[in-house]
Design a protein around this nucleic acid. Sequence first.
DNA 1: GACTCGTGGAA
DNA 2: TTTCCAAGAGT
Length: 350
Amino acid sequence: MLVSEFMLQQTRVETVAPYYGKWLKRFPGFAALADATPDEVMLAWKGLGYYSRARNLHRTAQMVRDNHGGELPEDPVALRSLPGIGEYTAGAVASIAFGRRVAAVDGNVRRVLARLLDLPHPTPAQLRRAAARLLDPDRPGDHNEAMMELGATICTPRAPRCGECPVAASCTALAAGTVSRRPAPRPPRQVPRVDYATVVALDPAGRILLAKRPETGLLADMWEFPSARLTPPPASPADRRSPSETRTTQPERAAPTPAALAHLAALGYHGQPAATLAPVRHAFTHLRATYHPIVTFCENEGRDARDHPGPTTTWINPAHLDGYALPVAQQRIGALLTAWIAGNRPRASG
DNA sequence: GACTCGTGGAA
DNA sequence: TTTCCAAGAGT
């Protein structure tokens, strides 16, 4: 249940389903997960997104092993202290798995309560009080699941089916005619557009260069083709409050070559662009990225990550790309590269 | 309270 | 094609 709760944070059931079974087979319990390496954990989470969840679940497994005798604590306060377990997950696990009398307020329950009580801007404290007051003390787990299921199937964000709702008679927002505006949606923010030059370096043996991302921030601890930002950093958060009517003047297509070669030189390699692959677009939660992949032939002077400072890098056989934790956009670049190599194989003998 | 942090699917 | 999310947690 802990694995499913981690995976379901901000993620749909249909997306999680294929990962869940494979994960439990790969890591059958806390001990197996705790003993795994970070790379093994990231590889199993590859493609699921919000990768800090994987690192936190890994750390939680190690804390369960080292501090809790190998068994997950049942007390919601103890659960709350584990990495990646917040107020919601602690309440869900404690009530559903262990029968503790605590509420679990997720996005669905928040919406249900906001409508039942007609609260436009419910605070976490208001939601905690309301959920605790309504909780069925005899069946807290079933109650919490029922609240979430009600929000997922009847009390939906758009087009709620109030005619089928079992608690419609108690719904304050329904009586007031404000259901569609409860809770009030937050005003949209402008999403920055960012262009990256992506270096696909090929050595004479046909191997490609990968770099490991920093252990914090976007796509932490994931592998990627070395990339350099082409567009200036986004404006300060306060400057992008308004909707997208004022689209920033980003170039439709950035010129990638100089920055790409500069980045490559910074890594200690030099070469000439052999081809430019099709741009790859990818929408993150708060960022819309466009990667401009450049294929370049490089002399691999037998160097690897231990021979020079800077980011961790490694040369790999393109056929082994699946063995590395690459985010989705980088996997797409890898697919483009594979196709390009296949189309250029006859000329590669020189 | 504001902000960061992925992805795929529906509208 | 673009928007808007969906079973949150950490800073």
